[in-house]
């Protein structure tokens, strides 16, 4: 536990690289990020351009369409590249919201304890057991389908685990001798939190955050698949939604429903591998060693 708190960010990346699966995760994530950022420039097919006639619909790969066309004759490969951006964006933004809520609840709860702790942790435990997907579906259906609402819904429902983990780390930090000493020297609570607590829970928060991104990307994909995605944006989940409802499976259009799923699998796996490896570095007892 003690060396976990002294881990320096650059040292963390080095250790991560040394772990086989952590390295695999980094490579996957770099590859996906690269194709999401650069891809649409290299491959300038308009992902929203519909086909000219019926013959352009659900076309197998070929004729300049690397991955064929969808049920409206749009190019699947350029949708895949644009979709990567939306999936990553939603995943990361929702994680930012979730981490801010989870980490601050966890730190305040663990540091101040008492009635505040009881109340905050009851709320946390409540959200920990309430089934997340049904709640996301209900909220998505009520508040409407646009990108910021999807981000908010996913972010506001993904923090309980973070809060629990951060709280227990804060609890153990609080027992360290230098905290009462700092207090007796007249340090204010906020100062102790900022200087003595936050830097030491940071590595744990980062490791957890990476794992949360994986969950948020899966949540976005699932919500979009259910039909609650932003109708104006192409994401991997919404591609799978349209391939499902347009009957691409029955017509054997594998080029339409395979690539987005593989994309989701790779990104989620990339974040999971990096997150697992980071957890192993920051908290060796907690993580499954791979």
């Amino acid at each position: 536990m003690s060396d976990s708190t002294t881990t320096h960010p650059t040292g963390m990346v080095k250790q991560l690289w040394r772990l086989g699966l952590g390295r695999a995760g980094i490579i996957i994530l770099i590859a996906v990020a690269f194709s999401a950022i650069v891809g649409p420039f290299i491959f300038p097919f308009d992902p929203a351009a519909v086909g000219a006639d019926a013959s352009s619909i659900l076309q197998a790969p070929g004729n300049g369409h690397i991955l064929g066309t969808d049920e409206l004759g749009r190019d699947v490969f350029s949708q895949l590249l644009t979709g990567a951006r939306i999936s990553l964006f939603v995943g990361v933004m929702a994680t930012v919201i979730s981490t801010i809520i989870g980490a601050s609840l966890g730190i305040f709860s663990g540091y101040f304890q008492g009635p505040l702790d009881t109340v905050l942790m009851s709320v946390t435990d409540f959200f920990l057991v309430v089934p997340a997907l049904p709640l996301m579906i209900a909220m998505g259906a009520i508040f409407g389908q646009n990108l910021s609402i999807i981000i908010l819904v996913i972010g506001f429902l993904s923090w309980p685990r973070t809060a629990r983990i951060v709280r227990s780390q804060t609890l153990s930090l609080r027992e360290r001798q230098y905290i009462p000493r700092a207090k007796s020297l007249g340090a204010k609570n906020m100062r102790i939190l900022r200087i003595n607590i936050l830097p030491h829970v940071m590595p744990l928060i980062i490791a957890n955050t990476i794992l949360v991104v994986a969950g948020c990307i899966l949540s976005e994909a699932t919500l979009s698949f259910i039909g609650l995605g932003d109708p104006d944006r192409i994401s991997w989940g919404s591609m799978l939604h349209f391939s499902f409802v347009s009957g691409a499976i029955g017509r054997g259009a594998w080029w339409y429903f395979l690539p987005p799923g593989i994309g989701i699998l790779f990104v989620v796996l990339g974040f999971t591998l990096v997150g697992q490896a980071l957890e192993q570095i920051t908290n060796p007892r907690l993580a499954a060693d791979v």
Partner: peptide, 8 residues
């Protein structure tokens, strides 16, 4: 397996 979307 844990990274797979169930619906996919």
């Amino acid at each position: 397996a844990w990274s797979l979307p169930t619906f996919w």
